[in-house]
Design a protein around this nucleic acid. Sequence first.
RNA 1: GGGCGGUUAGCUCAGUUGGUUAGAGCGCCUGCCUUACAAGCAGGAAGUCCGGGGUUCGAGUCCCUGACCGCCCACCA
Length: 947
Amino acid sequence: MPHDLPKAYDPAAIEDHWAEYWVREKLFAQPTPSADAAGKGEPFTILLPPPNVTGRLHMGHMLNQTEMDILIRWRRMSGRRALWLPGTDHAGIATQMMVERQLVSEGTSRQKLGREAFVERVWKWREHYGGVILDQMKRLGASVDWQREYFTMDEKLSIAVREAFVRLYEQNLIYRGAYIVNWCPRCQTAISDLEVFHEEQSGHLWEIRYPVLDAKGKDSGKFLSVATTRPETMLGDVAVAIHPEDDRYQHLHGKKLRLPLRTSDQSNRVIPIILDSWVSRDFGTGAVKVTPAHDPNDFALAERHSLPSINIMDDTGHINAESGPYAGLDRYVARKRVVADLEAQNLLAGIKDYVNNIGHCDRCKTVVEPRLSTQWFIKIQPLADKAKEAVRQGHIKFTPEMYEKTYFEWMENIHDWCISRQLWWGHRIPAWHCAECYKITVPKPNTKGDPTACAHCGSKKITQETDVLDTWFSSGLLPVSVFGWPHFNTENRADTALSDFRDFAAFYPTSLLVTGFDILFFWVARMIMFGCWFAEDVPHADGSKRSLADSVPFREVYIHALVLDANREKMSKVKGNVLDPIEIVKTYGTDAVRFTLAAMASPGTDIAFNIARTEGYRAFANKIWNAARFLFMNVDRAAEIGIVVDPTTLGKMPEAATYAPLEARWIVAELHATAAKVNQSLENYRYDDAANTIYQFFWGSFCDWYLEIVKLRLDFSESADKAQTKAALTTLVQVFEAALRLLSPFMPFLTEELWHAVYDGNPPAKSIALTFYPPIRQIQTDPAFGEMDLIRELIVQIRSQRKELGVPEKDSVPIIIHAVPMTQAPAALLDNLNVIQKLARVSNVQFSESEIQGPDVFHYPYFGYYSGRVVYERTIDVSAERERLTKEIAKYEKGLITAERQLGNESFLAKAPANVVEGLKKQEAETRLLLEKARAALEALPKERER
RNA sequence: GGGCGGUUAGCUCAGUUGGUUAGAGCGCCUGCCUUACAAGCAGGAAGUCCGGGGUUCGAGUCCCUGACCGCCCACCA
């Protein structure tokens, strides 16, 4: 037996095999186009948001990848030159943290190892764990080009990072300086604003009395109260600020205060009272201590008033040597100590409970410390302006649209980007410090090799900057760097790798970015800025200048939502509600999980992942599996009597002859309509519509109706009309094969397996993924839809009536039909009486010239009005029937009143479009008839016996 | 403090530019092991479209307003 499928669908038995096959056969490799690549299809490119090398696949990844895979498979099958490019991110802080943890568990540390050994260790770690998520992707069937896999610290990409840096430096867009940055004492590095998350925490607001000095510099006996949430920062106070027009403090103008704490510089530092209208009079006491080295506002204030900055903390969040007796204390210990010391001096005016927003390190959750420190920054405004312009001009389209607003919101309020990190793992900043003149040497653009002497004084005593770049600096460059930038753009054209240039020419800008909103600013915005900035210099293949429109890193961005648990809660390890996609995949199959995500992925709405849905879609897969078994069973039976479907009739969109049986014409029309809807839905990122449309087609139309009807035509007996059987079988196989292709992007494994089975080991391509997707075809309204509706509705009515009358499931019963207004029923009905008999278990259909009366008469309006009756002596539940009819009558009455009111409204008749009025009139007439019939039926019911 | 999104059946969600009697899956009820499928088949019940006002011939859909839920951004010590 060629078609020997197991009885039940078992994803485990098929998925591993195909996953491995797709990778081995390099089916989705998209090589660098040759010079004469014309006519090979318009490129469709997606860059995979590179997972961190620390990563394991979570539900968000799976959603992200499912969406990309559906689109790329669909576009590939639709004739586009599809490229989905995978890679991983070195993820500076995150990875360094993982390895540090590992070292701690081994009783050693990063510091003990030293920089070089540590970095080597991280590389080893990366080799070991870095591919986990990619292996998981393979298992999910992601149709990426594995030949192009990259890592953000690959040499090729590192060259791009260096070139981007030196160009920006050359353009005066990179500067180094001491500013307040967010400092993580655990990671011991600066982090950007985006890497800080704020959380409300209950704390205290301390009111501290600062002694006011008299003209001689002695305590005047008066005090100025100042409110603070961080008393330990007093050690760095250089002033106290009040509002110039604050009536309460007019007498203090020009006075000085004594800092009531001992520090090393002076036991009692004297600080001025300064006036600044930035101070709000109604907060706290209206007086604010100024600590420039530990607060951004204070820093700005100090600049305005030419005050010094006193840094009181070291890299680890401990008080430094500047602060005498407090030196070496942890910041929170110091806080307690300071408060105690103040209390001892009776300088604590009060402690209030206070809830404030505290910044935490995104990675390690440690409370960040705003801290003055020397860092590298990008002057972002020029890049942001260009990036805004690109979106404003419509060169990048956001879906859902609202994210465009979010993008602009952020871009309008953008701050310079702190790009230096005091880490060891990452791209070391290409700048050299001179030990003699202290100036900085940065290589010129388009040059190779590290500088050996100071560009300013010629000294050979130069050392490279120890800081590395923010991870997002390199990932922000990916759209240009993965396609070879800047190799081909160097002055030294001999260096130009031609193949890289062709990649860039063919695949940049990428078509689409699919990602979550959580990295909209981190990554998406940065790619747009970098892309627009650097790609504009790269000419087109023909040498012409690249416009802004062609400099963007991607033409469209699709932002997907979060995957929540079934109770709409965020998944988190703490809550213990994390679903591991790999586990679910093992139980239900990748296809079912993918389909679940697709069916629930409505743009802009979070997905409450419900395993019940996945169970349902596994059932769907099983349904298809069994439809295939049915089909193969018949193909095999047909073969026994010499009927064989010509395989060359497959692989295209089936057409039905006008003389073909109704179900054949109908299912073909349905297939076309489904293909049109699915294509349109995918075009608009409506994965949910697309998935549901296919589901409805496969299950609701193909299996529930078409297969049941086609059984009648598959007659393999001696007396059978072989031509008719063959025609039916051909349509069956054609539609099924096309439907598999339609479903393939959503359920790649199942469809691959069954598609190969359809071709019985001789497929026309290596994979269903390399065949053609059913396209949109302009369809006229096909009469088959209406005819089929007539038949279906009649069958449903009969089944319903049978149930009502209590006819045993297996029994066949006769029916009587009366048609109004025509005395003859239409051909569609007469031609398909056998279908009605089979599907509704009817023994005989009798047509009645006269109207049928009685409580068991059913009615339905199609091409006129039909009534019918199932002939059966029923055991009627009079009261239940009365209740049902009463409800039905009420419903009709209500509908009728609405319709009549509207039809009686002259302005409605005047203003509403004709088809709406027409429809309403028809509906009113139908309702009226149904109402009359229902009333008659109620009337005909035996009267309830008196009790 | 700003900004954004949501509220439709018991649950999770669709519902295009306003247009005929608001849909799906799951769950629920009833009956069936009908030779592709019990992960199935057939039939059925179930909604004050968050509340209030307005525009319109017509509102789940547009406008105003209130309530509740969620998210993002933000330097008030």
